[in-house]
Write a protein that binds this DNA or RNA. Structure first.
Lengths: 184, 184
DNA sequence: ACGGTTTTGAACCGTTTAGTTCTATACGAT
DNA sequence: ATCGTATAGAACTAAACGGTTCAAAACCGT
């Protein structure tokens, strides 16, 4: 029986994620990660294969925690869920602005294929859940068509959260967008 | 009178920009830039103060060239221009996918304030031009409200261009979005 | 106390980075 | 041809990088 670990994998992910979120993969150094997590390099390397592995684990951790919010599965399904998703989906917690996944889409050129897969998989799920909510409202337009439009708009809202004013105008925009959607 | 330069500033910007666009600021090295431009480091440093200066110059160069396209100033102003902007605004030229400015919004945490200023300035202009086109259609909803919604949707379309399937579904989405807008 | 094991922490390693320096080259003017 | 100047190219620099190694520390069992 050896010396006990003084960190948990979960803790490391919780603490590393905001750093990757804010700075991106390329501009987040192992030293940044050491500082954020309070775990030194050899500790990190016992838990993760390399920097990419840690990034991927953070991304998956993030996607799982977002899924758990269940914004699009609340009964009754409908426009209300769509509105909640658009207003509360992009985060606004300190330096956690917008969406780590959407921000990471910019870095696909340098991220591992698994990151691409995780994000596209999550988007497919979101689109499906959006479509279920839209279907419940019985619009004239195909629910899947509306769903993909909503997802694009959501993506735009998220990337805009990188602006200082990103949150300020968001709710109004969502209200206006909902007005437009209800006409379809 | 010394030895003549065998590159122009313009050429360097044209060649460096796609590299920054694809890889981002942080993951683009001086060596990458040397290779892309065919100009070696001391050449680049005679023309630009540092890497940030070159990035900023590329960004400005990009924004200017996008403005020159005049997608939103064609007469007669109206929905047609909005549609053209949404369909043709995000680029689809080899590795130049989407929008260099939108992609760069993810990197504000590490980019100079001037980059932030250039992008927000350009967005303000786009929003204004969008509003003029919308105004010409005399909608019931405030043109500025519709304009900012369009800009968010555009931003979403651009970030989605980082997906392999980004272009494929875009036109249909724009058509559907235009249907929604015309109801406002 | 000792031994075995695992973790922490510090040092190490080779490579890469942005930026600097310096020499050889290429030009125009005389 | 020579001189002065500016550029291209190569070498250099200190620091940073991701990952590795190894010694000290912390645990449990005997």
């Amino acid at each position: 029986m050896g010396r006990p670990k003084n960190f948990s994998r979960e803790e490391v992910l919780e603490k590393a994620m905001p750093v990757f979120w804010k700075h991106g993969f390329a501009d987040t150094s192992l030293q940044d990660l050491e500082r954020a997590t309070g775990v030194n390099k050899s500790g990190l390397y016992t838990e993760f294969r390399d920097k990419e592995d840690l990034f991927l684990a953070c991304l998956r951790h993030y996607l799982e925690s977002q899924d758990k919010r269940g914004l699009l599965t609340k009964e009754p399904l409908g426009w209300k869920n769509i509105e909640t998703f658009l207003k509360n989906g992009p985060l606004n917690k300190g330096e956690q602005q917008g969406c780590f996944a959407i921000n990471s889409m910019r870095e696909f050129a340098i991220l591992p294929d698994e990151a691409y897969g995780a994000i596209t998989g999550n988007r497919a799920l979101l689109q499906h859940l959006l479509a279920l909510n839209i279907e419940a409202e019985k619009p004239r337009m195909a629910p899947s068509a509306i769903a993909e439009m909503v997802l694009s708009f959501f993506s735009g809202l998220c990337i805009e959260r990188n602006l200082k004013s990103g949150k300020a105008s968001s709710a109004r925009k969502v209200d206006n967008f909902m007005t437009a959607l209800r006409s379809l």
